[in-house]
């Protein structure tokens, strides 16, 4: 029997997890990559919330429908000339009575390199198992719930929405380019087709996976020298004990419980 034994049922474990999610706070990542003719730079922030806890013997916390709330900013840069053919103003000749015949030269408009910003926010839910890891880190005892593997994130709907947002943003950006008007609709279609759902999925999946890969929630943190009573009167120093070992597990009787066993001295 350990010196101190703490047990929490699934309801208390759920509260513990939700507190850990709040403590984890908002995570940020950024990066860039090539996507065919596009260079994409991105920044993302995300936080976790919710989820139902199922405790599984011997040391697993299964979190169902954990919510990953994310906010993405993309900047798609590309040479528009790689997407749509350049536009040429043909030679035009007019007759001006007091000047004579005048012809303009044929001029080809080189489409510019443009950057399309796209912002997108959404929530994706996932279910994953976390194993309990009690360990000493410096002078603190920690119990972390560490994700097992990388959960499968359902992002097809989000990818379609991002592609649609890209199309809308592209239309707005392109509108400012001289002579693009007659080709605007076709250009937007060409841009979204060049990336495609598969491209967005291939971009979005790895970004979101960064936030869940290796995900770890800290559910317990106490100093190895544990303060029982603080110093009070001038003649009453603090009372401390040593937490010599911590072990975390899940037990099953008539209900599942998270157990924390502590040896002290």
């Amino acid at each position: 029997m350990p010196d101190i034994l703490v047990a929490a049922d699934e309801a208390a474990a759920t509260e513990l997890l939700h507190d850990a999610e709040t403590t984890l706070g908002t995570l940020s990542r950024s990066g860039s990559r090539s996507l065919g003719p596009f260079n994409v730079s991105w920044s993302a922030s995300a936080f976790l919330a919710g989820g139902a806890v199922d405790l599984i013997v011997p040391n697993v916390i299964r979190i169902s429908n954990c919510e990953l709330h994310y906010n993405l900013h993309f900047a798609f840069s590309f040479d528009l000339s790689n997407i749509i053919p350049d536009f040429c103003l043909p030679q035009i000749c007019v007759h001006i009575p007091f000047i004579g015949n005048v012809c303009t030269p044929r001029i080809c408009v080189n489409w510019p390199t443009i950057t399309i910003p796209v912002n997108f926010s959404d929530v994706v839910r996932f279910t994953a198992d976390f194993t309990l890891n009690a360990h000493l880190s410096g002078s603190n005892w920690l119990i972390d719930a560490v994700i097992v593997g990388i959960p499968n994130l359902q992002i097809s709907v989000a990818a379609a929405a991002i592609l649609a947002a890209l199309g809308v943003a592209a239309g707005a950006i392109l509108l400012g380019i001289p002579f693009i008007g007659p080709f605007l609709a076709g250009a937007v279609v060409a841009i979204t087709a060049a990336i495609g759902i598969a491209g967005i999925t291939g971009l979005l999946g790895p970004i979101l996976s960064l936030f869940v890969s290796g995900l770890s929630f800290n559910i317990y943190r106490q100093p190895r020298v544990f303060n029982v009573l603080p110093a009070s009167l001038p003649l009453d120093p603090a009372v401390n004990i040593n937490l010599n070992s911590i072990a975390a597990s899940v037990s099953h009787t008539n209900e599942d419980e998270l157990l924390i066993a502590v040896e002290i001295s």
Binding site: L89, I92, I96, I99, P178, I180, G181
Partner: peptide
């Protein structure tokens, strides 16, 4: 006897 021409882009 001068001429200015402009192609309109928008």
């Amino acid at each position: 006897e001068a001429l200015y021409s402009h192609a309109f882009g928008s």
